[in-house]
Design a protein around this nucleic acid. Structure first.
Length: 360
DNA sequence: TAGGCCATCTGGTCCT
DNA sequence: AGGACCAGATGGCCTA
């Protein structure tokens, strides 16, 4: 366990970020030297501050000017400060009592050393962010919408991953074949329209089937994705069902209109996956492996490599039948539950044989 | 050109 | 003291 991940929440006075604190002038008095920072002083719209705060700031700056121990001083700042010191010398005797002994001015060695430390810190920060991005990239590959050419943004990747985890855990919790419509709608909950379209393309669905309305609700109109999925012959995986290759069911309902929330609640019997929901509290971690339910292939699977860069396969849970032989949602021959799963008082028995392992 | 996304720099804070 | 983490600022790139 990385201790840094479980830090005790910072003290209340530290919750507001540094820059925000500067802007709000809520600095603790012992940190008033920051008011002399060039980034603060040059362009800050002081006239926008309340008069009382402007007075407070002026007072603090007067006090802070006497503190020469500022690591990030530039040479210009140093000369400016020397001028200030000459002025300050006039009443130095009086202020000396309050200030105490002057601190030693940082020498060139100290400045060079500080610059070097800053460069090293920058390099570490770059490396850290690269690691974070690498982790995010690996996350992109396991959410049900991976494209090398059209990458999900960071925020959309996280949102989709959250939705995916939620939908999968609820699927396991229900212990039955998922309602595909609800599943897809859950995936798209809160996603932007481009990402919704991307997921639609990924799932080989017509994006119009689950457009997001202006309220952020995922709406459904037209042919049910479920129907489309289950009746789709799939001779041309590049085309959404009903456009080419797929057989448009002549008996399909002409128009159906679901609101996302009702469809979601009907199936999941739970409120929205938003973490703000009471049910979701404390259940942020997926209590499952998705083995046996969904098998994601993103390394150019032979079945789907021709269809572009997306790869999603629906696999049957143990004892369940294939959805459709030609559907992109199909039972993976190696689909197994390699583990005992204990999901919210539910347990799935381990399959006896494991023909192959996938998804580390 | 505005807005979104991203990488990078930077300083503050916490921890070891 | 120094590293990790965090968040704000900034500028570049891309797209509608």
């Amino acid at each position: 366990m990385n201790g840094a991940e479980w830090r005790v929440p910072r003290d209340a006075k530290h919750v507001v970020s540094a820059a925000t604190r500067r802007d709000m002038l809520t600095l603790p008095f012992e940190e008033t030297h920051m008011m002399c920072e060039p980034r603060f002083g040059a362009n800050y719209p002081r006239e926008s501050l309340p008069e009382s705060l402007q007075q407070q700031e002026r007072q603090q700056r007067t006090t802070a000017r006497s503190d020469p121990d500022m690591m990030r001083e530039t040479e210009d700042d140093l000369s400016d400060r020397e001028e200030d010191e000459r002025e300050d010398d006039q009443d130095e005797n009086e202020l000396q009592k309050k200030r105490g002994p002057r601190k030693k001015r940082p020498g060139k060695e100290h400045v060079d050393r500080a610059k070097l430390r800053r460069q090293e810190a920058n390099a570490r920060e770059r490396s850290r962010m690269h690691g974070l991005n690498a982790a995010l990239e690996s996350l992109r590959k396991v959410v049900p919408c991976y494209s090398k050419t059209q990458k999900l943004s960071k925020i959309e990747t996280l949102r989709l991953a959250k939705n995916y985890i939620w939908a999968l855990s609820e699927t396991l919790n229900a212990g039955k074949r998922p309602d595909l419509l609800a599943f897809v709608q859950t995936l798209c909950k809160g996603l932007s329209q481009p990402t919704t379209n991307l997921v639609a393309g990924c799932l080989q669905l017509n994006a119009r089937n689950f457009l997001t309305d202006h309220n952020g609700e995922v709406m459904f109109s037209g042919r049910s994705p479920y129907e489309a999925m289950y009746s789709y012959t799939g001779s041309d995986m590049n085309s959404p069902p009903g456009h080419s290759g797929g057989v448009m069911d002549a008996n399909s309902k002409p128009f159906r209109h679901y609101s996302y929330s009702s469809a979601y609640e009907t199936y999941f019997e739970n409120p929205s996956p938003d973490s703000s929901s009471p049910h979701f509290d404390g259940q942020l971690s997926p209590p499952m492996s998705f083995n046996g339910i969904f098998s994601l292939k993103h390394d150019d699977p032979p079945d789907y490599g021709k269809s572009g860069h997306y790869g999603v396969r629906y696999c049957g849970a143990p004892g369940r039948t294939a959805l459709a032989p030609t559907s992109m949602y199909r039972v993976s021959p190696e689909a197994r539950f390699p583990y005992d799963l204990h999901v919210r008082s539910q347990s799935f028995q381990t399959q006896g044989e494991v023909n192959g392992s996938y998804h580390n």
